[in-house]
């Protein structure tokens, strides 16, 4: 008979360690016996969770592929070539990239899910720009905006996920990012249209977001401000 020194319970012969606390049994008179009758045999029942997720992914893929192929076919039959159907097929492909990876990974992480999305959006924009006569906007307008937006989103996700930003600092961070995004978008547009960096309407967005963000940050820091005052002014 072995007892757990930590819990005081007697352990069945089949237990190598205490199931309650994990402390291993060290009884020199009765060492752990791998052959002792166990309440549950070693055979494992397979779990089908992954298969079901794959099945869902397959169904979604078919649901997305069907209208895409249909559009390509109609486009080809009616117009004798592929023109507008590329927009439909491309959009469906983007949706597919947004939805399906979630079902394929057993442990979806932010990077595994988010980076393919960024890539898909960029490729779709590239596709549109190639379909048009003048597609120069892709490099000067589309890509800077995609990089800026996705960079800000990624930064927020990573910081919140890591716990660097928490509580009331989360809305503050999101607001500041929104402000920066607006300014960035205006700069990119102005650079394209009038050829120089100039700020106008985006300031009206930036200032309120910064003001509200400052409020959230103050609330988030209230505890530490109070501590600071007490530390420096205590009697």
């Amino acid at each position: 008979m072995s007892y757990c020194v930590n819990c005081g319970v007697e352990l069945d012969r089949s237990e190598k360690a205490c199931p309650l606390c994990g402390v291993e049994v060290l009884n020199p008179r009765q060492p752990y016996d791998d052959q002792a009758p166990r309440p549950y045999p070693k055979r494992l029942d397979p779990i089908y969770a992954r298969i079901n997720r794959r099945f869902t992914a397959a169904i979604l893929s078919i649901a997305a592929a069907f209208p895409a192929v249909l559009c390509l076919a109609i486009n080809f039959i009616l117009d004798g070539g592929l023109t507008w159907s590329f927009y439909v097929a491309g959009a469906l492909a983007v949706v597919w990239v947004f939805v399906v990876p979630y079902f394929l990974y057993a442990k979806p992480t932010i990077l595994k899910i988010f980076l393919p999305d960024v890539l898909a959006v960029s490729l779709y924009l590239l596709l549109i720009s190639k379909l048009q006569a003048d597609g120069s906007w892709f490099l000067t307008l589309a890509m800077p905006m995609v990089i800026l937006t996705c960079g800000l989103i990624l930064l927020n996700i990573v910081l919140i996920d890591a716990g660097t930003i928490y509580g009331f600092a989360i809305p503050a961070s999101i607001l500041i990012s929104a402000g920066i995004l607006t300014v960035g978008v205006e700069l990119i547009i102005n650079l394209e249209l009038i050829g120089r960096l100039q700020l106008g309407w985006s300031l009206y967005v930036l200032i309120p977001t910064l003001a509200v963000a400052a409020f959230f940050l103050t609330v988030a820091r209230r505890q530490s401000i109070r501590e600071e005052i007490r530390k420096r002014l205590h009697l």
Binding site: E10, A17, L20
Partner: peptide, 8 residues
């Protein structure tokens, strides 16, 4: 007295 067993 308690004797403990499990499916660990």
């Amino acid at each position: 007295p308690v004797r403990v067993e499990s499916n660990t």
